[in-house]
Design a protein around this nucleic acid. Structure first.
Length: 591
RNA sequence: GGUCCCGUAGUUCAAUGGAUAGAAUAGAAGUUUCCUAAACUUUAGAUGCAGGUUCGAUUCCUGCCGGGACUACCA
């Protein structure tokens, strides 16, 4: 049990014994004591001070005294200021905690709890290479899944590939028109970039044609419909749906190129999936879903043949689920996919990592599934995250303002390389070791940067300022780990040693933080929020660095102090490595 | 128009309704015969505006101002 919960329990008992006052432990507030006061943890008493009809000071003194008297192995001192009861936890308590946990790399993780959670993330478009916004999605999804896994959940990572539709046809038609049979191989281009380039070419050509038509006297709206390249694209979509062999072949070929490119990037950033779903397949069960819903009266048909659901009672609109020509729309596919996913895995919870621009869509999706009486509907959770923006505003593929993921990683590797060479601390590394180190640092910086912010909030990426390896960054934490490892290579703590020592402030600060790790993971789970881990792990590193500068481990004042500090160092390294692994970040032995 | 989200140091981010609003970075000033200075220490600097609820509000409520998203028979 965490010390905070322990304190809550003891306070509840004390209140009952002293005053016959019953309070639920969860209603008690225990905070870290502010540094300017004496104590480690603080009980905030305002909530019940009135009901007990005593002055806050008197109440604090009575509770504090009782706590110290009945639990001398936990509390050594107390003081009350206004409605705050500050409690000092015994050094022996902290030492015991350290002694029993310092060598356990599993500290913080929980045993299996029998719950199955699906995490759908990444979900790319096959006509766009991965950019910085997608990276946030990938890192978030992977990390949330990892956090859940370490907390005892069985996790299933999945991905829905957006592989069909009018936008894919745009790339296809542009390739037919302009490529002259070029391939990624013939042009030495990464497959996803190759296809993405034709998507851009389509838009350029489309724009040109629209302008020409407008110049010829057509209205803009007309021109946008009449442009030959757009007409060709629409025809191609119809051909695709009819299964015309040459269109299907081209589609398969181009998507194949994209997947080859994606594989490279996924491997590099560490994204992996238990199962990939493809929209070109889920739209069929989607239609089936709608048919069934029509029978049960969840949906209704309008005169023109289109199918709708009425969500006005829920404060939303009527929503189309099938076009009048019987083809499926976006949400149709999602309905089919939800059904498929559940049939495949029978999950308890299903997390969708999708940007917040789709809040409405996800609300509708869950609502429809609930109205359809699906057993899995309530377990759906939309992990909605904010967009990554540039100082100039939102990234837009068509305007060429996206920060490409592959370029971004290359640049980070480059910075890591230059910085490492400049510092010259790993001159004895082999070429392979260096490459691995640059990769570790570069991806560590990038992942940490994107995960350290609350997912819900949108964030700004400034290319000039955001690539930093100092301060609140991944490399800062990695560096702390490397420094600790350097000590531990000299000596490791002796097992089973019973240390009794008076803790210095910087030693105790660090132990107190270490003890909070399991609570932090719990918080990250309930909030679906990896930034909690990032902030925590940074605080640990900062706390260790302060301690490290002030007190020597190898030349400690006594052998006992040395053992204590070795334990501290080892546990800090473990927790850093563990916390960073929850973010998908590696930590180097040396850097 | 309707629905929803967001406004915190120059900048990027924190703060289950609790004590004097924390970090990082940029700025100023320091620290290396001693375990990795990608580090540490000191310093200055912020809750958009106006009300309300509360013992107590960055947090909850209302209005205003500013920014964004959604509101497609696009995905």
């Amino acid at each position: 049990m965490s010390i905070v919960n322990e304190i809550k329990k003891l306070v509840a008992i004390t209140l009952k014994e002293l005053y016959g006052f019953e309070v639920a432990e969860k209603d008690l507030t225990i905070n870290s004591t502010k540094p300017e006061f004496e104590g480690d943890y603080t009980l905030v008493m305002f909530s019940f001070v009135k009901q007990l009809k005593k002055s806050p000071e008197q109440l604090g003194n009575e509770i504090g005294e009782a706590l110290v008297r009945t639990n001398p192995e936990i509390f050594t001192a107390h003081n009350t200021i206004k409605g705050f009861l500050n409690l000092t936890v015994a050094d022996t308590y902290w030492l015991k905690f350290l002694n029993t946990n310092y060598s356990s790399p599993k500290f913080g993780s929980s045993p299996a709890n029998g719950q199955k959670v699906m995490v759908e993330y990444s979900s790319p478009n096959t006509n766009k290479p991965i950019h910085l916004g997608h990276l946030r999605n990938n890192f978030l999804g992977w990390s949330v899944a990892q956090i859940l896994k370490e907390s005892g959940y069985e996790t299933i990572k999945t991905c829905i590939v957006n592989d069909r539709g009018i936008h894919i046809c745009k790339s296809m038609i542009a390739w037919q028109l302009f490529a002259n049979g070029a391939t990624p191989q013939s042009t030495n281009t990464k497959g996803d970039h190759f296809v993405g380039d034709y998507y851009v070419k389509f838009n350029d050509e489309y724009k040109k044609q629209v302008e020409e038509l407008v110049a010829g006297g057509m209205t803009k709206e007309q021109a946008e419909k009449e442009a030959p390249i757009m007409k060709g694209t629409q025809q191609m979509l119809l051909d695709w749906e009819e299964g015309k062999p040459d269109v299907i072949d081209l589609w398969k070929k181009m998507n194949g190129w994209v997947y080859e490119g994606f594989d490279v990037t996924y491997k590099r950033i560490g994204s992996d999936f238990a199962k990939m779903y493809y929209e070109s397949e889920t739209y069929i069960p989607g239609k089936k879903f709608v048919e069934e819903g029509l029978k049960t009266g969840v949906f209704f048909k309008k005169e023109d043949g289109s199918v709708w659901i009425d969500l006005t009672e829920e404060g939303l609109d009527e929503k189309l689920v099938l076009r009048k020509d019987g083809t499926s729309v976006y949400i149709t596919q999602d309905l089919g996919l939800a059904q498929e996913k559940y049939e495949d895995f029978k999950y308890d919870q299903s997390i969708y990592v999708i940007a917040d621009e789709q809040n409405y869509h996800m609300k509708v999706l869950k609502l429809i599934l609930q109205k359809a009486g699906k057993p899995y509907a309530d377990g759906i959770y939309h992990l909605s995250y904010g967009m990554v923006e540039l100082p100039s505003g939102r990234m837009k593929s068509r305007e060429g303002t996206v920060v490409d993921a592959d370029d971004m990683i290359d640049e980070m590797v480059n910075v890591a390389k230059n910085k490492t060479e400049e510092l010259g601390k790993v001159k004895d590394f082999t070429e392979e070791e260096l490459i691995e180190l640059y990769d570790t640092i570069a991806l560590g910086a990038l992942k940490f940067f994107l995960l350290r912010v609350d997912p819900k909030k949108r964030m700004i990426f400034n290319p000039e300022e955001s690539i930093d390896f100092h301060g609140f960054t991944g490399p800062f934490v990695q560096y702390t780990h490397a420094r600790i490892k350097s000590i531990l290579r000299k000596q490791t703590p002796e097992n089973g040693l019973d240390i009794s020592s008076t803790l210095l402030k910087l030693e105790k600060d660090l132990i107190i933080l270490l003890e909070q790790y399991p609570t932090i993971i719990e918080q990250a789970v309930t909030e679906h929020n990896p930034s909690v881990i990032a902030i925590y792990v940074f605080n640990i590193a900062k706390s260790f660095n302060s301690f490290y500068t002030e007190h020597s481990v190898m030349n400690a004042e006594s052998e006992e102090k040395k053992q204590l500090r070795l334990q501290l160092a080892q546990m800090t390294a473990n927790v850093i490595a563990s916390g960073m692994s929850l973010l998908g970040i590696k930590v180097p032995e040396r850097m």
